[in-house]
């Protein structure tokens, strides 16, 4: 579906917050797609990291918010070490997650998770998942 871009769709405040929380210059990205190609989780993403960066550059807060990309990211830093522009993409993904989580909305609910998984999983899995995906 085509995305309409106009002066009204550019959310400057969103872009500023994203850059402030992530500490990254979003506009440094020149859309090579190395991040997308090196992402081990890309098959489960609505859109690859490259596209998220593009939408973010355009300040399309609503469009970025519709995608599951930042919630599928496992913070593995594969994209980060390969990015020719030196962008720390996992930080951008974290900033996108936090902008949602900080409204007290969780991506997963620990109280409703499958009990056998909670029993079997190593503790670090729970700690990591709750830190990244709950508020």
């Amino acid at each position: 579906m085509p995305i309409k871009i106009s002066a009204r769709t550019v959310k400057r405040e969103f872009l500023e917050r994203l850059e402030k929380i992530s500490g990254q210059n979003i506009h440094k990205c020149f859309q090579c797609g190395t991040c997308s190609g090196s992402c081990p989780m890309n098959a489960s993403m609505d859109a690859f990291p490259r596209k998220v960066m593009h939408l973010a550059q355009l300040g399309l807060e609503g469009e970025v918010g519709k995608l599951n990309t930042c919630w599928i990211c496992a913070s593995c830093h594969a994209c980060n070490v390969k990015c020719p522009r030196g962008i720390d993409l996992p930080r951008v993904m974290e900033a996108l997650r936090l902008m949602a989580l900080r409204r007290n909305v969780d991506h997963i609910n620990p109280s409703r998770m499958a009990s056998d998984l909670l029993r079997e999983c190593p503790q670090i899995a729970m700690v990591a998942a709750f830190r990244k995906l709950t508020s």
Partner: peptide
């Protein structure tokens, strides 16, 4: 401890 984890998974939200 697994019983505790199952009943109180929020244990792992401690910072």
């Amino acid at each position: 401890a697994d019983s505790v984890y199952e009943l109180y998974p929020e244990l792992f939200r401690c910072v």
